[in-house]
């Protein structure tokens, strides 16, 4: 992320204490992680101590310090999805993408993470890619669903 991009984000959101999380969210959205260099730039620009940024970045689950894939795949393993075979969907995905749970594919396309419940148990088993939710997923559908996202 260049300095100009960062400046535009900061100007959009103001420089007080509460927008700090907003700024980090925006960076996370654009870069898919919080790169060290960018955090350094934020600290310098806002005169915020690095410890504060690091504390926030490690506290909230939505921030990652390590780069993740362009698309986040959340596989629901909640009670209902578990009963309806969410685990098998997960295993199939991991096999197809050659990753481990929470891992990123080598082409930085997908990151697969298990989640507990997405709140739509009536269409279990459920997977979510970015913000699109797919219900009644079967193993044979997976390849088609993955094709839609590159």
């Amino acid at each position: 992320m260049t300095k100009e991009e960062l400046n535009s984000i900061i100007e959009e959101r103001g420089t007080g204490a509460p927008p700090l999380v907003g700024i980090l969210q925006e960076i996370q959205k654009r870069e898919h992680c919080l790169p060290f260099r960018t955090l350094e730039m934020v600290a310098e620009r806002l005169a915020t101590p690095m410890s504060r940024l690091y504390s926030l970045a490690t506290f909230y689950k939505s921030f990652t310090l390590k780069p993740v894939g362009r698309h986040a795949i959340d596989v629901c393993l909640g009670t209902t999805c578990h009963v309806c075979g969410g685990r098998r969907i997960m295993d199939r995905l991991l096999l197809a993408l050659h990753v481990i749970e929470g891992g990123t594919t080598s082409d930085h396309r997908f990151t697969v993470t298990p989640v507990r419940c997405l709140g739509c148990c009536s269409i279990a088993p459920v997977i979510r890619i970015d913000s699109t939710v797919y219900g009644h997923v079967t193993q044979s559908q997976l390849a088609k669903i993955l094709e839609k996202h590159d």
Binding site: P49, S51, R52, Y54, S55, T58, F59
Partner: peptide, 9 residues
């Protein structure tokens, strides 16, 4: 100085 802070949750 604010050199240290809580990390993680």
């Amino acid at each position: 100085a604010r050199a240290i802070d809580f990390v993680g949750r």
